[in-house]
Amino acid sequence: MKKKIWIGIGVATLIILMVGVSVYRTAFAKPLAVEVMEVKREKISSSLMVPGTLELQEEQSIFPSPELGKVEEILVEVGQKVKKGDVLVRFDNTQLSLEIEQNKISVESGYLRINQLQKQKEHLDSRKKELTEQIGKKEAEQQLAPEYDQIETEKRLANLDLKQTLLQKEALEERIKDFELSSLVDGIVLTVNENMTELVTEVQEPLVQVGSLQNMIATGSLSEYDVLKVRTGQKVIVKSDVLPNEEWQGEIIDVANVPQSTGLGNPLENQAVQFPIIVQINGGIELKPGFQLIMEIETEEKEGLVISSEAIIYEDDKTFVYLVNDGIAHKQEIEIGITSGERMEVVEGLKAEDMIVLNPSDKVSDGMEVTVE
């Protein structure tokens, strides 16, 4: 009997002790310390993340051409700076070369003929001077007049022939340009393929590739849903995994009105429609053509209440934050609008200057007393 009494006393003592500890903790324990942020009205923009490829905006590739004939000479080398109009590749044309050589002979022959007639006239002038001393000026002129007329006529014909030959030369020089391909841009020679001068294959590589590294663009594609949110002039932030700490500014300069054709699959089947876009990159970029990019396109900008995503709690398809008011944490349901990275617009549930808990832990609960760090 006494044993049961002592057991009862022990249990009662333990219960009293536990209640006392609980009361002590309630009365004297410090409130949970939390980090908070103030809800502010700021500008916020929504964005699309689109993969892209870095390309040259101004680029020219010259390929072998059976119509132009065999490559005679590549006049540039990799890394060489070129200006618009500089000859890059010259093609060989046997018939044209023959005509050019014949024309050179004709021009030289024309000048020789004119020089010969000029010497004949000078010789006739010497005879005229001698005859003038012998028979007088008038008689000398009458006697030599037929020879002067003959020389003058031949000189006129020779000059006409030479003029025609020089016109042919100009025409041939214009035809030469048809067999010379020049640069269409101010830039630098990117590739030179000497192996392509003899061989023409089905899959051709360019003989010469020229481009301007100063003007770069990024190309990508948008779905039929996203393309409605995009227009020319919108701002774009360009990033690359190669240089993760760098970013470049740009803007959209072209959005296709028709989707790109993949040429694959059955046209009667539903296929993903993609609309090409082009982004002009402002300023220099340290990457090379062909590098893969991520383009963050700003699609909408507005002013609203903005909080950090670190304050958000998701439960049962609903969104909550802990609102701190007079040292008490209140669980508050909110409605989210547009997002930009870690910044989120609050459409409903909060007002400016409200204080909310950042990174709320599992220890935070509705109605709990908290202290702000």
Rank of each mutant, 00 (worst) to 15 (best):
K2G: 01
T13W: 04
M18E: 07
V21Y: 08
R25I: 15
R25T: 11
A29F: 15
A29C: 08
V34R: 00
M37I: 04
K40S: 06
R41Y: 15
K43Y: 10
K43D: 05
L48I: 06
M49Y: 15
T53Y: 02
Q57M: 10
E58W: 12
P64N: 09
P64K: 13
E67L: 12
E67H: 10
K70W: 02
V78Y: 06
G85D: 13
F91I: 07
L96D: 09
N103M: 04
V107Y: 08
Y111N: 05
K129W: 04
T132F: 00
E141D: 08
L160Q: 06
L162D: 03
E173N: 15
E174V: 08
I176G: 03
I176T: 14
K177C: 12
S183K: 08
L190E: 09
E194Q: 14
T197C: 03
E198C: 04
V200K: 11
E205S: 00
L207N: 01
L207V: 03
Q214N: 07
N215T: 04
M216V: 02
E224Y: 06
G233P: 14
G233F: 15
Q234K: 11
I237A: 10
I237L: 12
E247R: 12
E251K: 15
P267K: 02
Q271C: 09
A272F: 13
Q274C: 09
I277T: 10
M295Q: 03
E296I: 05
E301F: 01
L305G: 01
I307V: 07
I313N: 06
V321K: 00
V324Q: 08
I328P: 01
K331C: 05
S340R: 11
L350N: 10
E353H: 13
N359S: 09
P360Y: 04
V372Y: 00
